[in-house]
């Protein structure tokens, strides 16, 4: 009998692993049923840790901070996020200095965009690459909150 107990312990030790996920999207509603349109139990933010309770096809029932509800599996990730583009952005960085900065790998996303000043002359304005158009495209970036609101609300206007 004792050897069965030992084996069972081994077995369960290796099996016991409650699935833990993190919320991938900026904001997600915990729904009372596996269907968009059902009541909202709670709203969770990015990187919130949740525990899986149940699965129904493409929906997962999770529990966080005492509240339980359904989310689409597309909103769950096994890992935490790396942080937003804001955390990569160091707006105080002096972009005018042309010396190639190797001090830290954490230079900024902004610097990456403006790196033309300091980097090797990679850009060639010979018709092969259109930097003016690129700048225009980048200027069309919409605020995260505005975009999310617009998406969530079908009646929203530009």
């Amino acid at each position: 009998m004792s050897k069965y107990i030992i084996v069972f312990t081994f077995f369960f030790c290796s099996q016991v692993q409650a699935s833990v996920y993190f919320i991938k999207s900026a904001k997600v509603d915990l729904l009372s049923a596996a269907e968009k349109g059902s009541d909202v139990v709670a709203t969770l933010e990015r990187d919130t840790e949740v525990k899986e309770l149940d699965v129904d096809r493409t929906w997962v029932k999770v529990e966080s901070d005492g509240k339980a509800g359904w989310v689409s599996k597309i909103f769950l990730s096994k890992k935490k996020s790396m942080g937003t583009s804001q955390s990569l952005l160091d707006t105080d960085e002096d972009l005018s200095s042309s010396a190639r900065k190797r001090a830290s790998a954490l230079t900024s996303a902004g610097a990456a965009r403006g790196l033309r000043a300091g980097s090797d002359q990679l850009y060639q304005e010979d018709g092969e690459e259109n930097l003016a158009a690129l700048k225009i495209m980048e200027s069309w970036k919409v605020d995260d909150e505005v975009g999310l609101e617009f998406l969530m609300n079908p009646q929203g206007e530009l």
Binding site: S25, V146, G147
Partner: peptide, 11 residues
């Protein structure tokens, strides 16, 4: 761009 920004926030 607006729809895209919202989707980017979502997924």
């Amino acid at each position: 761009s607006t729809l895209g920004a919202g989707l980017a926030q979502m997924i």
